[in-house]
């Protein structure tokens, strides 16, 4: 601040641009889309047969081999949220790479905000995932590949923020966080591949009957999907804006304190 010669280029992410004008509109649109989509998934999409288990299985105290499940509706929420969280992680890794290339503080801020969004959506994914396993498979938790991967991803993202909090030097913090964001991005698909491809005899093989989805299922799903992605983007812009304000405020306070001290 007060240093007009070198300017503030690269310190703060650009805010107040078209994206921020769009953010509140997107937020409203996202709420509308997800709500309508969710309602449609109940009233329009037909009920689906749940998991067909090898042989019979006890689900919710009932011996079943095949059951009509209302819990399948969780899927309309679960999958869009999971995809949004992964997109946020991709964005975080992208900004992390940009940061390491340029060393501009703004990319660190952007990467960090993407991680925050990722965390929010990963937690939502986990919550719905656990509900899903409970009502579809009859257990609260199973080390199923997708669930495991998201659990591990959640731990890594939480670790990311613990790491950030444990470093005082801002530049070092930014570098380490960027490195971790990139590793997290690479590790997650590997985790999914390995948990999926390593043969295991312990878990029941769960197959879903009938691969196809009708229009009445795809439309609500797509509505919620777009809604969630928009929601993620809108939250990102809003959060970014408030963080930049905060950073500028801090810098200003510091300058003022300096001036008062030297006066």
């Amino acid at each position: 601040m007060g240093d007009k010669r070198t300017g503030n280029a690269g310190i703060y992410p650009a805010v107040g641009t078209w994206a921020d004008t769009l953010a509140p509109i997107l937020l409203l649109l996202a709420l509308l889309l997800t709500t309508i989509g969710f309602v449609l998934s109940f009233i329009w999409a037909p009920p689906v047969y749940g998991a067909s288990v090898n042989g019979v299985e006890v689900i919710g105290g009932q011996v079943v081999s095949n059951v009509l499940l209302i819990s399948q509706k969780i899927f309309y929420f679960h999958m869009p949220v999971a995809i949004t969280s992964f997109l946020a992680l991709v964005a975080a890794a992208f900004f992390a790479v940009r940061f390491l290339m340029t060393r501009e503080a703004r990319f660190d801020t952007m990467s960090r905000v993407c991680m925050e969004i990722a965390l929010v959506f990963v937690i939502m994914t986990m919550a719905t995932g656990v509900m899903w396993t409970r009502f579809e498979w009859g257990v609260w938790w199973t080390w199923e590949p997708r669930l495991t991967t998201y659990f591990i991803l959640m731990l890594i993202v939480i670790g990311y923020f613990i790491l950030r909090n444990a470093i005082d030097d801002p530049e070092r913090r930014a570098v380490y966080a960027a490195v971790l964001a990139i590793i997290a991005f690479v590790d997650t698909p590997i985790c999914f591949m390995i948990t999926r491809l390593v043969p295991s005899s312990i878990h029941p093989v769960v197959l879903r009957q009938g691969g196809g989805m009708g229009v009445s299922m795809i439309v609500p799903l797509l509505m919620i999907m777009f809604g969630m992605v928009m929601l993620g983007f809108a939250l990102y812009r809003l959060r970014l804006r408030s963080i930049v304000l905060e950073q500028k405020c801090d810098a200003l306070t510091e300058t003022l304190e300096d001036q008062r001290e030297s006066a």
Binding site: M1, I11, A105, A174, Q247, A251
Partner: peptide
């Protein structure tokens, strides 16, 4: 020579 990160400047235009 300059060493800075964000709004913190450790060495400026030396």
């Amino acid at each position: 020579l300059r060493k800075a990160f964000g709004s913190r400047v450790a060495v400026d235009d030396l």
